[in-house]
Nucleic acid binder design. Structure first.
Lengths: 333, 333
DNA sequence: ATTAGCACACTATTTTTTCCAGTGCTAATT
DNA sequence: AATTAGCACTGGAAAAAATAGTGTGCTAAT
């Protein structure tokens, strides 16, 4: 598929125009820009439509970009937008606060991205893969309650409170924690629960009667780690998109999807390099949205930042922002 | 203001009818139930309107309850609804899981409440008042990073990672933590930051040059504690309410309000006994909603569970559920 | 290759019409 | 005194009709 210069310009113009106005673009409105008559534009439009890059909403409407059209646009025509000074200022407040914890920094990022773009954004993070078990501590609260504290070499700490079952003594729990510390220190966090079952369980079975119950407590404590950490920004921004303002059902469908952790986690799959754009059906999330995402590494933690919006997302702006953030992260190393 | 039996029945009928149908209630539809003609009903309606308990949406419409009408209804006419077996079953999964941490249990509660009621619900919790500082630990991650671990006598643990500023040594931080442990152990958590400033700061000023910077690290670590813990359930349920299905602006206004932490925290003020109902302007939150809330104490933690919905909320059902949950909590002590 | 011209398609908006569920009031009835 | 039948009237919702506007595709001319 080959487009000549004018066709490219035309497609670019139509995509950007539609993104801005959310109205099908008619031929007359483009005459001036292209120094030709509407009929000429119409001819070109017709051929772009034949190529599957444009669509009509009805027989005699103006054109809107098709999924393929958006795709062509982002792959060949779009120029990422530079951030405005104002936007940079907003983001600086994060990057300049040096003592901010990585997680906090990222959460703030998402918030600001949503503020700037007016779309919903999300971080999927704390991939625990590179974290190694450092130690597990047991803190006694009272006769019936303990807190299990799990700490990794990278400083991620999880804590979980437990009610001690009647038939278990605190000593048995502490004993077990010591065994775990001795045998599993340095184990990748996501392998701990496996080794817990195959190495620790048999071990404590020798000395503790109710070993199953004790095992379960530790299993739960570690299990929190493998849970994905998901932080949203600007969920209600969906409501700001004009395509939904008359379609509350659609909004609900979308919000429910965003609430479905399993589905959202899918966004993180395929950790490709750079900034990736998935349009409509490519998203595996919802055929009516576009997802722009990038994977980040920062001080040993990694994750994905994604922006979710309508297919007529302001691609250039969003890519510009993610680009900027990515660079800041990498420079920060 | 005194209503006779029939007027009470009529008001109750109208309120419950309107809650169900979201349509103004006309006189004819009630004839059968009251064994009289529509004219009679109209007369009674007129006097209820004169008392300010009913309203019309336009000159010749049926009646809807006024704010005062709802109020009268919940105070005098409503009978809390028993939970269905199905609903009880759902809630049992929480109460029967004994090893569940309080916070987790409450969060689950909120989720289920929203599922059952189709309204938005929220817990405001972890009032740190009764928590006393037990100890603060510093874990070294690498040369530049530490984790500060704050633990209270009730087993609430907060951790916060810090990048160590260049001009500070880890030793200085550890030294400070020891001083804090010695001097402030047993201090109510919400007083710690005050004492930190007046007692610890002068103390470390003697031995640490950059004492301000060190002070700030600890200040931040404790500060997380005083933040309110807010967990929502079913935020998108707002979209299910028919009054909003044609009014996306209103939905956005509401969701934004729910996102405003300051405003939401207001819900917790006035910790009265029992189950409290605030209708419209009484809420201090939004004149178009009703908030039903109750305060809970559970294993030393306390907080507020609230259900937020339209003024035509299913009062009997919501009160029934909160009642049930409250009883379970109290029985669980 | 471009353009003017024209018939035709579809939407959106406004206006008009029609219908209906409701009310309040009065006078009659119980 | 309380209830009811009867009736004129109101406001809104839904359907139908009228109108205007934006756009297309095609043909023939440039």
């Amino acid at each position: 598929m080959h487009l000549d210069k004018r066709q490219k310009d035309l497609l670019k113009e139509i995509v950007e125009n539609y993104i801005k106005t959310v109205k099908p673009v008619g031929s007359t409105s483009l005459c001036e820009k292209f120094n030709c008559s509407s009929a000429t534009i119409r001819n070109e439009m017709a051929s772009l439509e034949k190529m599957g890059l444009l669509e009509k909403t009805h027989l005699s409407s103006g054109r809107i970009p098709s999924e393929k059209g958006y795709k062509y646009y982002v792959d060949n025509l779009m120029v990422p937008k530079e951030l405005t000074g104002e936007d940079i200022l907003k983001l600086q407040t994060i990057f300049q606060n040096n003592s901010l914890e990585v997680n906090d920094a990222i959460s703030k990022c998402v918030e600001i991205i949503s503020e700037i773009t007016n779309y919903t954004s999300v971080v999927l993070g704390k991939s625990s893969k590179d974290n190694l078990l450092r130690q597990i501590d047991i803190i006694e609260i009272d006769d019936n309650h303990i807190v299990a504290l799990v700490c990794t070499n990278k400083g991620i700490v999880e804590n979980k409170q437990f009610k001690i079952p009647n038939n278990i003594s605190i000593n048995e729990i502490i004993k077990t924690s010591e065994i775990i510390n001795k045998m599993l220190k340095g184990t990748p966090i996501d392998e701990v629960n496996m080794r817990l079952e195959y190495e620790i369980k048999p071990e404590i079975a020798k000395i503790i009667k109710q070993y199953e119950t004790v095992y379960n407590i530790f299993y739960d404590a570690f299990n929190d780690f493998t849970k994905n950490n998901v932080v949203f920004g600007g969920k209600s921004n969906i409501l700001k998109q004009p395509e939904y303002s008359n379609n509350i059902e659609e909004v609900r469908r979308l919000i429910d999807k965003l609430d479905d952790e399993k589905l959202v986690t899918k966004i993180e799959e395929n950790k490709e390099k750079g900034i990736n754009i998935y349009i409509g059906n490519e998203t595996e999330f919802d055929s009516n949205v576009t997802i722009i995402k990038t994977h980040y590494h920062l001080n040993g933690e990694e994750g994905t930042i994604a922006v979710v919006g309508p297919k007529r997302m302001e691609y250039d702006k969003v890519v510009g922002i993610l680009d900027y953030i990515k660079k800041q992260f990498e420079g920060d190393k």
